[in-house]
């Protein structure tokens, strides 16, 4: 089997109900956008392999339901995430204010060193804007996060923000990354990697290629 990727990790999308988490993901993985969409129940799963810095990264993306009633379920997914998108809707002041709550959930449930990025989605809805760009920037700065205004509808900053979070996660794991890189340039090691892949690639036994 040909090697499909060098490393694997998990990203998580969180934020209020209806801010467009599923739409962001659909745009990223399938390049599709639908203005009417069906609400997420619990957690959905998608994946995509992208190349960052010469490394093929397979990302598993967990798309969570924003509704409060599902939060017992969705919080179970924080633990294994390496990167988290915190999403609000620029046309909803309320969803912006709730970022505070989402951040504190992350602090509580996600592993230390998890990478975060703030997303103000629906940037195409300028006429309905309730949250200024500066407000987003300011909040991101406060929490030490990168910030993007995105639009799944017009495909604004989608690839950029996913790539950025991927880079951040890669950087945060630079040590392990160097190992992968060295081995990737070495044919013997490459074969070893392929062998790894024929085994289950769940989190427990993939310590070489996945940081969980």
């Amino acid at each position: 089997m040909a090697k499909q990727y060098d490393v694997l990790f998990r990203l998580l999308l969180i934020g209020d109900s209806g801010v467009g988490k599923t739409c962001l993901l659909c745009r990223f993985t399938d390049n599709e956008f639908h203005s009417s969409h069906i609400s997420t129940i619990g957690v959905d799963f998608k994946m995509k392999t992208i190349e960052v810095d010469g490394i093929k990264v397979r990302i598993q993306i967990w798309d969570t339901a924003g509704q409060e009633r599902y939060q017992t379920i969705t919080k179970q997914y924080y633990r294994r995430a390496q990167g988290i998108f915190l999403v609000y809707d620029i046309s909803s002041e309320r969803s912006y204010q709730h970022i505070m709550k989402w951040v504190s959930d992350v602090d509580e449930y996600a592993p230390e060193g998890v990478q975060k990025i703030l997303i103000g989605n629906k940037a195409d809805e300028e006429q309905k804007r309730q949250v200024g760009r500066e407000q987003g920037q300011q909040l991101a700065k406060e929490y030490g996060m990168d910030f993007y205004e995105t639009s799944a509808c017009t495909n604004l900053n989608i690839k950029e923000s996913f790539t950025r979070l991927t880079e951040l996660v890669l950087q945060a794991h630079r040590k392990e990354l160097d190992g992968v890189r060295t081995r990737a340039s070495n044919e013997m090691a490459l074969a070893e990697l392929e062998e790894d892949e024929s085994k289950p690639e769940g989190p427990a036994n993939s310590s070489k290629t996945c940081w969980c």
């Binding site: 599923t22 993901l25 659909c26 993985t29 399938d30 599709e32 956008f33 639908h34 203005s35 009417s36 969409h37 069906i38 997420t40 129940i41 959905d44 799963f45 998608k46 994946m47 995509k48 798309d63």
Partner: peptide
């Protein structure tokens, strides 16, 4: 990668259909 039925695949908006 496959579309997720029940989650990510609502109908197309007729106004947008053409573009997509």
């Amino acid at each position: 990668i496959q579309p997720v039925y029940g989650a990510q695949h609502p109908p197309l908006d007729p106004r947008l259909t053409k573009n997509f």
